[in-house]
């Protein structure tokens, strides 16, 4: 934790670590240490910068991003609503918790064929993204709601609060930092979920690019699609970390 104590040092370590990974990836590719399937990073970047490559990645990246965003929204809405309902109606809580745990224990790979027949090829990425998000959000919101200080709870009790007022005036605002905690974890999960969902026959998206590049042995395309997915995931994480900081300052 000494590194965290000095932000300058921590940032330096971070940049240094990232640089090491990049250089290592380049060298492994350059000397073909991992075979032909691992191209040098410069080849991947060269492909990304070609007009055809960048156009293809942009089009499909946007599709994945859209599916992930829709899935994130759906998962968040369902999970927050479910967690709030389990709080207000305690009878529902054990059932909801078990249902969420079971849903989470199901491998998405196993669910995907089922979803393709029910939700359809186009919507499967969104649904898998929503499923990946739902569990995390449900757990963080449940713990956020449970984290209400006794003194605040007493205040609402002596004011004669109804259950709904307690939720609106105390538990929801109190859970705002947890909500953004959940989002920082969920946003990358949504990108990953959407990408996996696209493997199973989606008409467009980064997942489709990955599968077809793999089957046609287009290594630069495969790696650049992975690179874009990673970049999206990281960007989503960074954006939501900023929101989370604001939320902690405002509601903490």
């Amino acid at each position: 934790m000494t590194a965290a104590a000095r932000p300058g040092t921590a940032a330096l370590f971070g940049i240094g670590g990232a640089l090491l990974v990049v250089v290592a990836a380049q060298l492994v590719g350059q000397f073909q240490l991992a075979g032909r399937a691992w191209p040098p990073l410069t080849d991947v970047l060269a492909y990304v910068t070609t007009p055809a490559g960048s156009g293809l990645l942009l089009r499909n990246g946007l599709v994945t991003l859209t599916a992930a965003a829709q899935g994130l929204l759906l998962g968040v809405v369902v999970a927050v609503f479910g967690a709030a309902l389990a709080l207000v109606v305690p009878m529902l809580r054990p059932g909801f918790e078990r249902f969420a745990a079971i849903l989470n224990a199901f491998p998405t790979i196993a669910l995907a064929p089922l979803l393709i027949t029910t939700a359809g090829r186009e919507d499967t990425p969104m649904v898998i993204a929503a499923l990946s998000v739902g569990f995390v959000m449900f757990v963080t919101m449940t713990s956020g709601f449970a984290n209400v200080p006794a003194a605040h709870s007493d205040v609402l009790t002596v004011l004669g609060s109804s259950r709904v007022q307690r939720l609106v005036r105390l538990e929801l605002p109190r859970a705002v930092p947890s909500f953004f905690d959940g989002l920082t974890l969920s946003a990358p999960a949504a990108i990953l979920g959407a990408t996996i969902g696209e493997w199973f026959g989606a008409p467009k998206g980064l997942g489709l690019l990955l599968v077809s590049a793999m089957q046609n042995y287009q290594m630069p395309l495969l790696w650049s699609a992975a690179l874009v997915a990673t970049a999206l995931s990281l960007a989503a994480y960074i954006v939501f970390v900023q929101f989370q900081r604001i939320a902690v300052r405002r509601f903490g």
Binding site: P149, A151, H152, D154, V155, L156, V158, L159, G160, S161, S162, Q165, R169, L170, P173, V176, R250, F251, G252
Partner: peptide, 27 residues
């Protein structure tokens, strides 16, 4: 009923005005 607790128990996200208005809203 009105209670002032030993530890003030004000809602940290709400302004002074909003904290004092809370009993009206809850009621």
């Amino acid at each position: 009923l009105g209670v002032a607790f030993q530890e003030h128990a004000l809602l940290p996200w709400a302004s002074v005005r909003a904290n004092i208005a809370l009993p009206f809203q809850v009621a």
